[in-house]
Amino acid sequence: MKTFTSLSLCAAAAAASLAFSATARAQSTMAYPEKCRSHSMDMSKTDMSSGGTQMGEMTDYRKASMDGMKDMNMNMMQGMMKKDADVSFVCGMIAHHMGAISMSEVELKYGDNEEAKQMAQKIIEAQKKEIEEMSKWVDKEAK
């Protein structure tokens, strides 16, 4: 029984690792649409600090979360600068969904609770589908 439990745990760990690797690869290929970028916005003057906390003082999962939040905030701000309200909304939502995927990937990598990990996986799957739909809309509608 002990061997069976050990094998089950190893198989579960391997499956989780493969699932994370697949989502990490998919996320890395999922780029923020170029039509959502606001090239007139000078992002070098935007303070995206970590609220006074030094990155060196953070745990690995906090660093990973902060990196994802920085990317999301940067993209959301660019998307929201679009002159067309509809394009602005959709671009902002794409960035928001990408942030949700990033947070979920951090949960899959660092989390311990199986129920939370299942929620994270569902979020990744749903948000990717919606990002694809919204990106197609932006490609068609944004000038």
Results as ranks from 00 to 15, higher is better:
E132F: 06
S6Y: 05
Q78C: 02
A95I: 01
K70I: 13
M43W: 03
K117S: 09
K136Y: 03
L7S: 08
A31F: 00
F4G: 06
F4D: 15
A12T: 01
M81N: 10
K129D: 14
S38D: 15
K109S: 12
G111T: 03
T3V: 06
K35V: 11
M72D: 08
K45A: 12
N73C: 10
I131A: 09
C10V: 09
Y110V: 02
A142G: 05
N73V: 01
S21E: 14
M103T: 12
M81E: 12
V90C: 00
R62A: 15
F20V: 05
A16P: 00
I131E: 09
G92F: 01
G51S: 10
L108Y: 01
E133M: 15
H39T: 12
V106R: 02
M119H: 10
A16G: 10
M81T: 10
Y32T: 00
I123Q: 10
G51Q: 12
A16L: 06
K129T: 14
Q121M: 15
G68V: 00
E114H: 08
Y110G: 05
Q78G: 07
R37S: 09
A120N: 04
C91T: 02
W137V: 06
M69D: 09
D60R: 11
T46H: 14
M30E: 10
C10P: 00
M30R: 07
T53W: 11
L7G: 01
S49M: 08
K63R: 13
A16K: 03
D67M: 15
L9I: 09
T46L: 15
M98A: 11
S104I: 02
K63E: 08
E114F: 06
Q118A: 15
A11M: 08
R25W: 10
M66Y: 12
M72S: 11
S28R: 06
C91I: 03
M93R: 07
T53H: 13
L9R: 11
I94F: 04
S8F: 09
G52H: 09
A126Q: 11
I101K: 00
F89M: 13
E105V: 06
K2P: 02
D60L: 13
C91S: 02
S135F: 03
F4Q: 12
K140E: 14
S135D: 08
K45C: 07
E141N: 15
V138R: 06
D86A: 14
A31V: 02
M77C: 00
K136L: 09
C91D: 05
E107S: 07
C91R: 01
S40H: 08
V87K: 01
M30W: 04
K109R: 13
T46K: 12
G56Y: 06
G52F: 04
D84M: 04
S28L: 03
G51F: 08
Q54G: 15
A120H: 01
M76H: 02
S44F: 05
S88I: 04
V90M: 05
G68T: 03
A116L: 13
A14Q: 02
I131V: 13
H97D: 11
T29K: 14
E125Y: 10
A16Y: 00
N113S: 10
R62Y: 09
D42I: 00
A142L: 07
Y61F: 11
A142W: 04
T53S: 11
A100W: 00
A85Q: 09
A26I: 05
A22R: 08
T46W: 15
A116N: 10
I123C: 11
A31H: 07
D112G: 14
M48K: 06
A120R: 02
M74V: 06
V138P: 04
Y110A: 07
Y32L: 05
K128Y: 14
C36E: 03
